[in-house]
């Protein structure tokens, strides 16, 4: 461990003045930088959240309305809070006669989700992901229970 240098009277004085001026130069430059504060409700038009931000869980669908979920239930088992509830059914594939599991409804409770992303990590087919949408305030708690998949009619 290096010893602190002992300064005499005058060398201490000049060393002190030099270090003070160095500090003041740093803050002087900081005074003229552009401020990073985002004035939130007024800047909604230009607001861009960063990609890794976890806003809410969505299940992306392609143009024909298909999703990639196979109702395996891995996300439901991974979730620490019990936020996800999967309703699935076994359907018989008409051509081969084999039984396959198919997703009926994907319940997601935004009120109890803690945005830990364990469900997204657990999904083997990237069926669910987090979007950066963060404005979720509602007036009734029931509106927070969501169904994430879209059934084709």
């Amino acid at each position: 461990m290096s010893e602190a240098k002992e300064y005499g009277y005058f060398s201490g004085l000049f060393h002190g003045i030099k270090t003070l001026l160095t500090g003041m130069r740093v803050t002087f430059k900081e005074f003229f930088t552009k401020k990073v504060t985002e004035e939130y409700p007024e800047n909604r038009a230009v607001l861009k959240m960063f990609d890794r931000f976890r806003g809410t869980l969505v299940m992306p669908h392609d143009e024909e309305g298909n999703n990639k979920c196979i109702a395996c239930g891995l996300c439901q088992m991974a979730c620490p809070n019990g936020t996800i509830r999967i309703e699935s059914e076994m359907v018989e594939d008409p051509e081969t006669g084999k039984k396959k599991r198919r997703l009926v409804r994907y319940h997601y409770d935004l009120g109890s989700c803690m945005f830990c992303q364990l469900c997204v990590n657990a999904c083997p087919h990237d069926a669910i992901r987090f979007s950066t949408e963060f404005e979720h305030a509602v007036f009734e708690r029931e509106k927070l229970q969501e169904i994430l998949n879209i059934t084709k009619e």
Binding site: T27, E30, F31, T33, K35, V36, T37, E39
Partner: peptide, 11 residues
Amino acid sequence: CAAFQCRLGPV
């Protein structure tokens, strides 16, 4: 003080 701390102060 806000300008020295890279923020805006009361707006």
